[in-house]
Design a protein around this nucleic acid. Structure first.
Lengths: 243, 243
DNA sequence: CGCCCCGTTGAGGAACGTCAATAAGAGTGG
DNA sequence: CCACTCTTATTGACGTTCCTCAACGGGGCG
């Protein structure tokens, strides 16, 4: 059976007992495969389910009148979106896949079931707060850092987040994104994104080919990025990674 | 007695009965005055209270190693921050005043009391989701828009938010911020901020003197900004403004 | 009066965007 | 297996936005 990325993630925050883990396993039993570049829900629609990503990359994004797109968050395996989304009567942004994904749709009743377990509830609320902290960090990143440290910061973040759910080995992870998508994430043009990646490669900080990203020199990459992982609130990273 | 900006704000989202309103009034009875440019809580500290702003502007912000500052959110009268902040063991950003403020510190017990009232709870959760939506919109704003529409967008947002708590009349509101602070909000330099404001004035879209901002031509300002208020989820703006 | 903060303005430079062309690879149908 | 097409990555030349540095003026306040 595929690993339960949701419980992996929550265990970064809270201890989960057998009942919790069994519930989390049952919840992810009904997955569906979604092709790349498909919306899970679009701006303006009424939210129905909470979405959970078990494989692949999804994102939140918004499209402006002139066609420009801003990607505002990545959802990677274990990530859940908008616990309280049922309160809203329309989505103010869209949710879509970037790569092929395995998705679980959680209807309201199942979410309430999860929130009935105190430690799961605390874990989910903490995850939500971390998502918010991540969003703030992205704002800082785009608002204050120049292109190269900005991209370096994103790559550091993904290293930490994917490691926390066991998706990093040998400083390497799968980054199933095109340079256009990365550019739309970082608020820059694809051309400039390309040049920044070239530069990071030339400095031997990373390698990136066929969607495999390797951090060759994490110390220098982190210093270039001004990296500080405190906003991820990962207290038990090493333990979780070892499982 | 000073108007209860918290109930004004929540009434944009939910109907509140007399008991709700009385509770909200009792909760804001013990305010304190905080001078401008004082931290309510700093990055790294352990959160103790939830903060509620009743007067003035406060903000969330982060300072980078090189001294650059990014302001990530404004808190205006009626705004409350981080309902669930007690879950975190350290702040990943700071909270400080921008102008002189009236602040209420809500200890955990009082927050729980508020959450016991279903409609207040829904209103508070909705506010939280709107805050998140606002943060996302700021990311879009900084990531995708050039300086002038970016600033225009901020001014439109403040017009809508302040109007929703009754702080706008004649398209005019108090904006107690320096150009340096506005620049740190928008991810640009104070010099450029100044030039953008000049340009908006020259086009007769706004006037801004001694902290009084007047929107002279909201239609054109909104079109310049690409303004779409859907992320504020304000369903009853007109009614609230009329009270 | 003098100081400091804030707003304003100018000149020059760096970062990033735009436009355009080419290459390289993946999938498709013949 | 090859021709074809489409997407993605790459590179160059050039333009624009925004930043940097610097100077000056005005108002509030001790």
């Amino acid at each position: 059976m595929a690993p339960n990325f949701l419980s992996r993630k929550l265990r970064n925050f809270m201890h989960l007992d057998k009942i919790d883990l069994a519930l989390l396993d049952s919840v992810i039993s009904k997955t569906r495969t979604v092709a790349a570049h498909v919306d899970l829900i679009s701006e303006g629609e009424k939210p129905s389910d909470v979405h959970l990503v078990l494989q692949g990359f999804a994102c939140r994004y918004k499209i402006l009148q002139d066609g420009r797109r801003q990607i505002m968050a990545y959802l990677v395996p274990g990530d859940i979106c908008d616990l309280h989304v049922f309160l809203l009567d329309h989505m103010d942004h869209s949710l879509g896949t970037l790569s092929t994904c395995e998705i679980v749709d959680l209807p309201r009743t199942v979410v309430l079931e999860l929130l009935d377990r105190p430690n799961i509830a605390r874990g989910l609320l903490l995850s939500t707060m971390v998502d918010e902290g991540t969003l703030r960090e992205w704002l800082v990143n785009i608002g204050q850092r120049e292109a190269e440290p900005r991209v370096a910061h994103l790559l550091c973040e993904l290293l930490a987040r994917l490691r926390s759910v066991g998706l990093v080995s040998d400083q390497k992870y799968t980054l199933p994104l095109t340079q256009v998508e990365l550019a739309d994430t970082m608020g820059m043009t694809p051309v400039h994104m390309n040049r920044v990646l070239q530069s990071l490669r030339r400095k031997a900080l990373i390698s990136l080919e066929s969607n495999q990203l390797t951090v060759l020199n994490s110390k220098r990459l982190e210093s270039e990025a001004g990296w500080n992982p405190n906003y991820l609130h990962l207290r038990k990273v090493a333990a979780a990674a070892a499982e």
